[in-house]
């Protein structure tokens, strides 16, 4: 209750910063994620882990998709988890690693961007947003050393260049801007191989959606922690498209149609589409 008092008493204080995290750190540190005592032993495997996220640029924007599986060791702890989050009108992030810490980070990051926008009357630049997320990842380094690793991926539509941009991170922070495509999580190696072959320059957003679904399918094919399309339960990957019209999470019907196209192809050739040899 002490922290409740502290932040309520300081609502009217000019903190000199438009950062929500800074305000919490000053007056309600208990609310910040990662602000915990050192754990007696690394937790690693026992906590659910989120797995593969892919993002690729397309004509006039960017597409991000994530599978729905969370695993604790060899157990599937959740089969319809959502790991791609809208962070503001023109950006989104995906998380891989410790699910709980990742979700908390995404939630704080959403407020962080919106808080700045409301106080300052303008949105952060795309680089500013990417850097801000890097700070949060770095803040989690202590917890990461204890096994609570979170590595996000950030994608945004940049009004200045009129196209999509993708940023990757490591446990120490970042950001690293990736041209064209990027993937994170346990199945990322397989997904990236798939994206490399299927990426088409300036593909229309609906083509790009099919590309990311193919990549996730390939990841699920070779990585046990990544979930493929769950045909019986009708659980499909979460797909987000960001263009100049803003963030749009594809509704179920649209994803269903794309997944059916994909499955029909895989019924004939289980390894999926092939890239031309020359």
């Amino acid at each position: 209750m002490a922290s409740q008092q502290a932040w309520m008493n300081n609502l009217f204080t000019n903190t000199g910063s438009s950062s929500f995290t800074e305000f919490l750190r000053g007056y309600a540190p208990d609310m910040l994620p990662g602000n915990r005592d050192a754990l007696p032993a690394p937790v690693g495997e026992q906590i659910p882990h989120a797995t593969t996220i892919v993002a690729i640029t397309c004509a006039g924007g960017v597409v991000m998709a994530g599978d729905r599986r969370a695993t604790s060791g060899n157990m599937i702890s959740n089969r319809d988890m959502e790991k791609v989050f809208r962070t503001d009108e023109y950006s989104c992030m995906g998380i891989a690693g410790t699910a709980s810490t990742g979700i908390e980070m995404a939630r704080l990051y959403q407020v962080e961007l919106e808080h700045y926008e409301k106080l300052e009357g303008r949105s952060l630049s795309t680089e500013g947003k990417a850097n801000r997320l890097a700070t949060m990842v770095r803040g989690n380094l202590g917890a990461a050393m204890q096994g609570l690793v979170v590595v996000p991926i950030f994608a945004a539509y940049d009004e200045r260049i009129g196209g999509g941009r993708i940023f990757g991170y490591d446990v120490g922070g970042g950001p690293y801007e990736h041209q064209l495509y990027h993937s994170i999580g346990s199945g990322s190696i397989f997904a990236r191989g798939s994206l490399k072959k299927l990426y088409r320059e300036n593909a229309a957003p609906d083509e790009a959606v099919l590309t990311v679904l193919q990549a996730l399918y390939d990841a699920a094919d070779d990585d046990s922690a990544t979930g493929g399309p769950d045909v019986t339960r009708k659980i499909w990957p979460v797909v987000a498209v960001i263009t100049d019209e803003g963030f749009r999470r594809l509704p179920d019907e649209e994803v269903t149609a794309a997944v059916e196209t994909l499955l029909a192809g895989r019924m004939i050739d289980p390894d999926g589409p092939t890239a031309p040899l020359r």
């Binding site: 932040w7 309520m8 609502l11 929500f20 305000f23 919490l24 309600a28 609310m31 939630r107 704080l108 407020v111 919106e114 808080h115 409301k118 106080l119």
Partner: peptide
């Protein structure tokens, strides 16, 4: 804005 954001986050 601070009040709303802290409560919405909490």
């Amino acid at each position: 804005i601070r009040y709303a954001d802290v409560n919405g986050y909490n």
